[in-house]
Design a protein around this nucleic acid. Structure first.
Lengths: 205, 205
DNA sequence: ATTATAAGCTAATTCCAATTAGCTGTCAAG
DNA sequence: CTTGACAGCTAATTGGAATTAGCTTATAAT
């Protein structure tokens, strides 16, 4: 039941591994458990399936983003109090973000699809950059700005602080997308990064 | 002349933008200025062209890597002296690495091809991770370890230092691959990052 | 001069994958 | 009960893309 939705799920799984062109309608159908022509009862073409995946994602993202306070909306950082943020708080936040991005099945597949399709499709390039760069930067920059203003952290360029805090998470995520088996090796490094970052910007040493 | 080499160049250009499957033999031939069947006088199949590109790159990399002191060979960091490394030295080194990766035409195309093919081809995944993560990390970690030991920088985990130094370069490079027009916006940020990194790890502030 | 080879071309050939045609069974609404 | 929409199937159809066949010309070696 709900074949229509299952088609999108299986198609996304396949697209994220093989890219749009190397996935055949018959592959998607097989994954769903039907024959290729039956699939046309639900979508009028392969491209239509792809578009539906994009539409679905656009809905999902705004929810998740505001949930994680990750959106570009500058009002959202208000929720973070100016006052103390401990090293453990930063670790919790950074690891939480990292683990969510890395392990949420839907998010992961969608990201991998963006990765392999980005140069063919300018829309996807924009979505990728917004979700994985501009939005996190803008949120974190606002946060670090306030933490600096509140005297919790050194007064340094908050854009740079955001870049330095976030890009290790991003980079290691891309490595783990390629080599999930190396995750064990990198998780501790992320935590060490965040603790070291925190100490450096608190001026402790 | 040297059609054989031109085929590789044009094929790489196309593969890097559209991915292997979306490039037709006729496209490559057209870019070279011949007809598709003529191309088979030089390579026995489309796959053969792809393989030749890989082979060529394997040769290129080891040279470039040792030139840039970027390889995984731990002896290579010996060239860096223990003694003083100024903020400007770090900027020069970081920006040089970044600009080379970002603007060298061959390197850029090859990276984009790795990006879009990585999940289909485990070999490419390994090459990507080696060239853009393991090798830079191992070189820089050795370097920061020596700078710490020499008292030039604080004694902190050198793996984390390498991660923090390099991952902003990597991440911004991936953004610029998608949006070359945003380069102007990001180059200054890279320089600020390196200067801020340097000051933090020198304990100045 | 002759001939072999290299590198190009046009015209098949072959295969494959998306899509369409047309049929069948189910089942809910009337 | 019976009819229409739904969702599936098998068997075409269509179009596109890789590769092969077979021919031509230029050139370099004999």
């Amino acid at each position: 039941m709900n074949t229509k939705k299952r088609i999108l799920d299986e198609a996304l799984t396949l697209f994220s591994e093989k890219g749009y062109s190397d996935v055949f309608v018959a592959d998607i159908a097989k994954a769903v458990g039907i024959k290729a022509p039956s699939l046309y009862k639900h979508y009028k073409s392969k491209q239509d399936i792809f578009d539906a995946i994009l539409d679905e994602m656009k809905g999902n993202y705004e929810n998740k983003a505001s949930m994680l306070n990750m959106n570009g909306n500058n009002a959202s950082a208000d929720a973070v109090v100016f006052s103390a943020v401990s090293e453990d708080d930063l670790v919790k936040m950074g690891m939480g973000l990292f683990m969510y991005f890395l392990h949420d099945d839907y998010v992961k597949k969608f990201r991998k699809m963006l990765t392999v399709e980005q140069f063919k499709n300018p829309d996807l390039a924009l979505i990728f950059t917004k979700q994985y760069a501009d939005d996190p930067f803008s949120y974190q920059s606002a946060m670090f700005g306030m933490l600096s203003a509140g005297g919790v952290l050194k007064a340094e360029n908050p854009d740079v602080m955001a870049l330095q805090f976030y890009s290790p998470l991003f980079m290691i995520m891309t490595i783990c997308d390629r080599h999930p088996e190396r995750e064990r090796e990198f998780i501790p490094l992320i935590e060490q990064h965040i603790r070291q970052f925190s100490r450096l910007y608190k001026g402790e040493n």
